[in-house]
Nucleic acid binder design. Structure first.
Length: 239
DNA sequence: AAGCCCGCCAACCGCAACAGC
DNA sequence: GGCTGTTGCGGTTGGCGGGCT
């Protein structure tokens, strides 16, 4: 059964963008700025739907897009981030300046996934396109995280990364404080390690609603045991 | 040279979250 | 709190080009 098109208006262009369309879109955004994607095509004189315009801008026309091949350093970072976050492409892209979520997703699906699968299991088996995503995920040891979008502002609090903190005998505690800045649309939080005097912008794939509420009410000294946050991975990465 | 296969990647689509009323 | 429109995300599709037969 054919899927219902997202843009119901007839007469809209689909498929590859022409250079003229690109110019119309770029010129409009340079004058009027981003946003209001729904009305943008009409105002800019484009026969495209808003979603298409937004995607074209974010994935291709944006001035800070980095062209060229993914470097080995970027590839390594993608692998580590994917291990931590799973298929959270926008979050991963947020850690790679100039790279888009679409680009990283494509790179993962067409290259890294196969490469990692071969590393895990050098023996050829069934065609990789036949392997379900979930099976592939296990093959490369993906940690599935709970994903929510978060536009709330976090207040400062401490973050207990010690998963075994419920045990007795003064467990080793590491505390992280948050600066209250939430990057738009994602759960990326500034984190400082008070023990090691380091700081870092860290992606925290948000916890539950309750945890978010606690962050907001938060205050200094609060503890948060985030069930979706793998402290071992985090520590092996940053510490 | 022609046809086929396959990888790459831009673009599409559905859906969930968000924002405003 | 419910409704509605908008935005953003991630899975999927389809066209193109290069390699192989």
């Amino acid at each position: 059964m054919a899927r219902k098109p997202c843009c119901h208006r007839e007469g809209l262009n689909k498929g590859a963008w022409t250079s003229q369309e690109d110019k119309l879109l770029s010129d409009y955004i340079s004058i009027h700025g981003l946003g209001r994607w729904r009305s943008l095509p009409k105002n800019a004189g484009l026969k495209r739907c808003g979603k298409s315009c937004r995607l074209r801008w974010l994935n291709y026309l944006r001035p800070d897009i980095k062209r060229g091949n993914i470097t080995p350093e970027e590839e390594e970072l993608i692998i580590r981030l994917h291990k931590l976050l799973g298929n959270r492409w926008s979050l991963i892209a947020g850690r790679l300046p100039g790279r888009t979520d679409n680009e990283i997703k494509n790179y993962w699906n067409t290259r890294l996934r196969k490469k990692l699968l071969q590393d895990c299991n050098p023996k050829p088996q069934k065609s990789q396109t036949d392997i379900p995503t979930t099976e592939m995920a296990h093959a490369v040891d993906v940690i599935r995280t709970k994903a929510v979008r978060c536009t709330r502002t976090f207040k400062q609090c401490f973050f207990n990364t010690n998963k075994a903190s419920s045990s007795s005998a003064s467990p080793p505690m590491k505390e992280f404080c948050m600066d209250g800045v939430t990057r738009e649309g994602i759960g990326e939080i500034f984190v400082g390690d008070t023990d090691n005097n380091m700081s870092e912008n860290v992606i925290l794939d948000e916890a539950s609603e309750d945890d978010n509420n606690m962050y907001q009410e938060g205050g200094l000294g609060g503890e948060c045991l985030d069930p979706y946050f793998d402290a071992d991975v985090w520590e092996s990465w940053f510490l």
